[in-house]
């Protein structure tokens, strides 16, 4: 049985990492190794130079994790940089940068998102506030939309609000402002501002008049 205790950091501090019950950081904290905890609440700046495993994470500010973020719930605002992400629920606004794959059962991100590897989620909701990209996207329900607020506030400057991906595959796919190589799905809705090389669908396809689809194909399931 691992002995777990609480950790509270106020101000600037560092820790070796380890097993905790509850971790609270207000200010700045560097963890020199892996962190495994039940709940984590961060305000300010936190860096983990190993992996992070938690049941619950709530944050405001900046978080960087060198290897992997793994666990249950991740929610908050600010900036996250991580090697890989694999959680149940990811609800985040701000900027999310992942060097490898990003996986969640439920994923809601508004802001910017850069995933070098695969972005995979049961339900995936992405609201674009700036340039976003993922090498590949897969899931059941995929929705990519540009932010209405930003479009209204900065009229005519929406050019950088684009999601770029090589391949998007899902059951229900709805896209806006997306540049993609191939999109495959049962039900596919290509919204305004999209440039797609190839769309393959089985049940339903709708293409907005301002979108460009070079090639479309219906396949029989």
């Amino acid at each position: 049985m691992i002995n777990r205790s609480n950790l509270k950091v106020l101000g600037t501090s560092s820790s070796l990492g380890g097993y905790f019950l509850e971790v609270k950081v207000t200010g700045e904290c560097k963890f020199a190794g892996d962190v495994d905890c039940q709940s984590l609440s961060l305000t300010g700046q936190t860096a983990v130079s190993g992996s992070l495993r938690m049941e619950k994470l709530k944050m405001t500010g900046e978080l960087s994790v060198k290897d992997r973020i793994e666990g249950g719930m991740l929610r908050g605002h600010g900036e996250i940089q991580a090697g890989n992400v694999s959680v149940e629920l990811l609800k985040f606004s701000g900027s999310l940068e992942v060097g490898g794959d990003c996986e969640a059962e439920e994923l809601q991100v508004s802001g910017t998102l850069q995933v070098k590897g695969m972005l995979s989620a049961e339900t995936l909701q992405l609201t674009l506030y700036g340039p976003c990209s993922a090498a590949e996207v897969g899931g059941s329900t995929i929705s990519v939309k540009r932010s209405k607020t930003k479009t209204l506030l900065h009229l005519g400057q929406g050019q950088d609000m684009v999601f770029t991906s090589g391949l998007i595959e899902g059951d229900d796919v709805e896209l806006q402002n997306t540049h993609a190589g191939t999109v495959r799905g049962e039900k596919v809705i290509i919204g305004p501002g999209c440039v797609i090389q190839q769309v393959e669908y089985s049940d339903f396809l709708e293409i907005h008049k301002s979108a460009t689809v070079i090639e479309q194909r219906k396949y029989v399931k």
């Binding site: 996986e103 995979s120 049961e122 897969g138 059941s140 595959e169 899902g170 393959e200 396949y219 399931k221």
Partner: peptide, 20 residues
């Protein structure tokens, strides 16, 4: 992948869920 989905009747969502 496409042949697999056709042959087994599973969906992209299922495939990616199982992979996760």
């Amino acid at each position: 992948k496409k042949e697999l989905l056709e042959l087994t009747g599973i969906s992209y969502g299922q495939l990616y869920r199982w992979k996760r």
